[in-house]
Amino acid sequence: MTSAEAPTAARGGPPRRRRAQRVPAALLVPALAGLLFLVLPLAGLVVRAPWASLPQRLTEPGALTALRLSVQTATVATLVCLLLGVPLAWLLARARFPGRRLVRALVTVPLVLPPVVGGVALLLVFGRRGLLGGWLDATFGFTLPFTTTGVVVAEAFVAMPFLVIAVEGALRGADTRYEEAAATLGAGRWTTFTHVTLPLVAPGVAAGAVLCWARALGEFGATITFAGNYPGVTQTMPLAVYQTIEGGDLDGAVVLSLVLLTVSVAILAGLRDKWITSA
C-alpha cells in the first residue's frame, strides 16, 4: 500500500513513542543555556520570596483586587484583539491592495514603540483633549483615561500585533484550495471564512490569542500612562508590583510577581492541554 491509501492519522495525531533520538550537542548546549536564561530570574523570585509571611500577604485584599482586574482586562483585551485582529490578519494575508507592505509594517509599530510612548500616543488620540477623545467627551461626556475600559484599550493596543502576526502567518500557511473547494460548493466569501478558513487556522489563532493575552497581562507602560493607576479601577498587577517596589517593599513585590506568574502559567498550561487534546 502506498501512502495515499494508508490513513493519514500520523499528521496531528498524538506523537508516537519512538526511540529517543540523539540531540546534537551544538543544539542541546545553547538550548539548555537559553532555557536557563529564561528560568533563572523566575528561580530568583522563588528563592527571594518571603515564604513565612506568604499566606498573610496573599490574603491582603489589594493583591487579589489587582489580580482579578488584570485577568479580566487581559481577557477582554484579547477578545477585542480577536474581533479586530483576525479580520486585519485576513486582509494582510489574502487581500491585494496598494501599500500592503506599509500596512503590515504599521501593524508592528506597537511592538517597537516603547509602551510608555504608546500610552502617550493613545492619550493624544483618545485622551480628553485627544483627536477622538475630545469628540467623545464633548458628545457623550465619556472619557477613556482613568477607566477600566482605558486599561483594556491600552492592553489591546500593545498586544494586538502579537495576534495579527500569528494569525497572518497561519493564514499564509493555510492551503487556499480548501477555500476554492468551499466556493465550488456554494459558499460565499464570508461563509467560507467562518466555516472553512477560521477552523483551518484555529491553532494559529489560538497561539496568537495566548501570546496576546500574556502580553496584555504583563502590560505596564501604556497602561499607567494612558489609564493611570487607581486600585480596583485601573491598577493591574504589574502596576501594583511597581508601586510596591517604589514603596520600598521588595518582599511584597516578589509575592505579587509570583502570584501573577503562577496564575498566568496555570491558565496557559490548562488551555494548552485542552487545545492539544481537541486538535
Binding site: E180, A181, A183, T184, L185, G186, A187, G188
Partner: peptide, 9 residues
Amino acid sequence: PPERRPIGV
C-alpha cells in the same frame, strides 16, 4: 463567481 455556478468539483 464559483459559488453561484451550478457545478460540483
